[in-house]
Design a protein around this nucleic acid. Structure first.
Lengths: 335, 335
DNA sequence: CTGAAAGCGCTTACAG
DNA sequence: CTGAAAGCGCTTACAG
């Protein structure tokens, strides 16, 4: 066991002062080449690593970013995190992960802890419960303490923070329009997340594209069995030709209904959904999906935060970036 | 903006010394009730939070745990992380997440960075590349610096560290035995991870259960198209009655083959695989699976690390915990 | 070119 | 019961 060596110990071994050692290791021009070399050599020999905690205290920053994730089992968020981690790594920043489990209470705890200055900045996707109850005091607390906050993914909220999201509304507007242009008449929508912001935006996009039609064929419910029944209704009774699914659950249920009812996909029913590639490709039939580029979203979120930390944005003015989605057609649409 | 108040400022406002304030806030018996109250009142008023960086420097610890994850898109690891986060939160510890992307190079960088003392301990699932190349110097470096390491999930490696994993071998032994007891004759196995440790263990369990049979029907490949062809061979030509899949990819490919070839599941072919519940339940037909209890694994990993940090284990002696898996029967086995 | 000193924000053994 | 002092491991403006 090597047991970390400190600057002080290094200085003693070299018979110079701590300041000299520190400067030498930072390539300060104040130090003579000769001593600089001596210092570096010994430092390397002992594998000296500056204590990051001490450096952080001195520089009054933490080198650390807090990321609040509502649900890590959702592969979208897992991939967002992966993008964040990769980008943070480039800047030698550490990611501290907090999982809110879509709970307001937990989110409050996390933000409260974060006000102590554990991190330089916070990236957060607001939990469903928080959105529903519209309680944002814990976020304002962060802002009060001058900790920059970047809101990612769930951005249709009126909060004074930088935001980076996905073009939820436009994506479904485009998808529905695309189906119409292909000559499809009865285009339906299924959703298990109609009660949360991103769900509402996707539905809105669909509705705009279908403008003029009344009584749009929509199946919405947060309960699996109810949603399934409603989807069956659309598919069997209303004989829709295409179904847009706002989320993983509704997409999978739709696939399931088609399978159970012997409906041919894509011949008789075209399906597309918001669902991750890893699963979409493997389903039978493989499911066409909206690619949201979660990794890019994660990268962009870190970039925005770092720009903010470096004072590249005016304070009081907030950034809002939108990542453009892509339609990916696999077997379930057959295009 | 409140701008964090410090002990010093608090002391000045109260006309007492910094030491008195600090002690008062820690309920030291040295302080008179009167001043203790005054101090606490003002601290509350100003919402004083001790600077965690300073506290950590003083206590020479970080309150932080490094978690190295090979692939966060794998929902197994996402759920492991979720368990770790929950347990760490109970102990007011922070989780710093690092993603190795199954790369040795990246894993080395991470471990190197970690030797600087960024974290109190490390939880790691060794990357595939590292396992293949059997290079573990970066892990020994961590140990050299006296940073405790707990290896999770991928534990069949000869390293002097605490380990916590899943009973991979036994799970498939039990599953194959179960099928045999049900009177099934031709039981096959498919794997896309036959080259890594956990894959090998699962295969071994299967082989042990099938002892006595020669020429076991096995399909293995890391390439999707090749694996699919081999699975088709087992299903169509060799007419196997049941297939054990060691991983997500092989399980999904098997489902796909059955679908494309018109094989009835579970009537003509029973399928079971290592796959997460969220996906298994939604597949058509829903896929029976081995539940690995990833959350529990995450919780246990943190517990072991904390016991180690608290000196509850003898040094030089290592813990090894195994989480027991469970068979979950859904439509694809029909039991 | 080198070093002593102050300071980042705390905690705690020690003196009074 | 209170406070001065030392120290955690660094960085950096300043004096020499």
């Amino acid at each position: 066991m090597k047991s970390k060596i400190t600057l002080k110990e290094l200085a003693k071994l070299l018979n110079v002062s701590v300041s000299t050692v520190s400067k030498a290791l930072h390539d300060s021009p104040e130090i003579s080449p000769k001593t600089a070399e001596r210092v570096k050599e010994l430092a390397k020999l002992h594998n000296y690593r500056p204590n990051p905690v001490a450096v952080n205290l001195k520089k009054s920053k933490t080198g650390t970013i807090g990321v609040v994730i509502p649900n890590i089992s959702n592969s979208f968020f897992a991939r967002v995190l992966s993008g964040m981690e990769a980008e943070a790594h480039k800047h030698e920043q550490q990611i501290i992960t907090y999982i809110s489990n879509e709970s307001l209470e937990r989110e409050k705890q996390i933000c409260d802890m974060l006000t102590s200055g554990m991190v330089d900045g916070v990236l957060i996707a607001i939990s469903e419960e928080t959105q529903k109850k519209k309680q944002f005091d814990h976020l304002f607390a962060l802002l009060d303490y001058d900790i920059p906050v970047v809101i990612y993914d769930r951005i249709n909220l009126d909060l004074p923070a930088d935001k980076i999201g996905v073009d939820d509304e436009k994506s479904f507007y485009d998808t529905a329009s695309f189906f119409k242009a292909k000559g499809l008449q009865k285009i339906g929508l299924a959703s298990a997340i109609h009660h949360v912001g991103i769900g509402q935006l996707r539905i809105k996009g669909y509705q705009k594209a279908m403008q003029g039609e009344n009584m749009l064929p929509m199946a919405t419910s947060t309960k699996a069995d109810e949603l399934k029944r409603k989807i069956k209704d659309l598919v069997i009774d209303q004989k829709i030709e295409a179904l847009l699914c706002t989320d993983f659950e509704s997409a999978i249920l739709a696939t399931r209904v088609a399978y159970e009812e012997g409906i041919k996909v894509p011949q008789d029913l075209k399906l597309i959904g918001y669902i991750g590639r890893e699963v979409a490709e493997y389903l039978t039939p493989s499911l066409s999906y909206i690619e949201q580029h979660p990794k890019e979203l994660g990268v962009a979120a870190i970039e925005v935060l770092n720009n903010r930390l470096q004072g590249k944005y005016e304070s009081g003015q907030f950034e809002e970036k939108i990542i453009t989605t892509t339609m990916v057609h696999l077997e379930s649409t057959g295009f």
